[in-house]
Every structure is written in C-alpha cells, then in structure tokens.
Amino acid sequence: MPELLHRKLERTATGFMLAIIVAASVGGIVEIAPLFTIDETVENVEDMRLYTPLELAGRNIYIREGCYACHSQMIRTLRDDVERYGPFSLAVESQYDHPMLWGSKRTGPDLARVGGKYSDFWHVAHLTNPRDVVPESNMPAYSWLARTPLRLDDLGSHLRAQRSVGVPYTDDMIENAARDAFGQAVPDSEQASGVTERYGEETQVSAFDGVTTRVTEMDALVAYLQVLGRLTKAAYQNTAAPEQPPNPND
C-alpha cells in the first residue's frame, strides 16, 4: 500500500519537491527556532563587554588567516578539557561573536582562555616565528603582520555593520572607532584615555607589537588574543571545583 502511494508521488515532480521540502524542514525548525526563545540558551551576565575596534580588527585577521582551522575556542564540559584550558566555555562568552569561532579541530591548543596567559612580547615572537619559542611547533609563521599597517579608516563602518546585526555599539563608539584603535595600541597618546572610557577599565591598552609609532596588523591580532576569555568573568564564578565540572544544562 505505501508502495502504491509512492508510485503516485513519483508521477508528479511538484508533489515530490513539496514532500522533500516538508521532510527536510522539520529537523531544523525543531532544533534551531527554540534557541532564540528559550531563556536558558544564553546566560544573563552583567559584566559582558564588547570588543574594542582594535580587537575586532584583530578578530577579522584571525578569520582571514584561517586560525580557526587549527585552534578551537570552545572548552568542553570534560574534566581534561577544563584542567588543560580553564573553566568550560559559556554561551554568553560568544554572545556577540558574528560569526562564532568555536572551531572543529585542534591541530594547536584551544585558545578560548589564552588572554593574559602569555605576555604581548611572547605573542609577537611566537607569531613572527613559532619555532623560536616552541621548537616542535608546526604552526605557520606570520611575520608579515608586523610589517603591514592596519587599515583604520573604515573601522567605523565595521562597528556600524556589527550594530545592525545586534551588537550594542553606541554612536560614540562608532564615531571614534579609528581613534580608539590607534589609542589602544599607543598608550602614551592622547587618544588612549578614550578607549577605557568607552570600553571599560578592564580594557588592555598597550604597545602590543612593541612599536608605538604606527598601528600594525600584529597589534590588532595580539590585542584580540589577549582579550580571549576576558570579556566576562562569568565562567570563573560558575565553576565550583574543576575536579567535577558541573554541566550548565543539567
């Protein structure tokens, strides 16, 4: 009987197509739609801050170079993950990540909490030639980043585009994007103070690549690496004992 029905369906291309669309839509709708409405999907935290323009530019370089192909940014709720990399990642920590960079492969270690783990100097040396600091590494060298000036003039449009997809940048932040990017990488400049005013005291203002006369792609990338895992402290307040990491969803 079902076979006969199917024989009928096979006779009409339109009917067949509709059947395919219906069959294929259910799964996605059931799994994705609730993620936007169920409150527990993303935790509510007070101290979550935004990427500064320099950090955002660094994030875009991280994307451009395909760092995500070898490094994850998602610490799982597993004992060895937590002991190796720190408290497991919460949904809120990537709340403003368009796109998310959780990754799917660890050719290199997880980077979700690498911020503050090494000095700026270490990062610059490592990115310039990884084998100078980790002789066994198979990571490519990114020496050209320190030679390439960062494009600053369009950072405002980047922030505006981010706002249109839901990241709460203010007009003030958008207007001062280029200044703030410069200020964050040149601590002695007059632009530096605006950065912490707008993005909070926790923001790291530093001569990331060690050169304060100009802002390079190296500055941006290191600024981004240094903020990873430090946008909010929620993850640290969440974990009771690393021995038995609780699952936030249980």
Binding site: S94, D97, M100, G166
Partner: peptide, 10 residues
C-alpha cells in the same frame, strides 16, 4: 558580518 551570533550561529 553574519546575522547569527554565538550559540545560535554554531
């Protein structure tokens, strides 16, 4: 910039 963010994007 994709309209999806974080966990929904994943």
């Amino acid at each position: 910039y994709t309209i999806w963010a974080g966990v929904q994007d994943s």
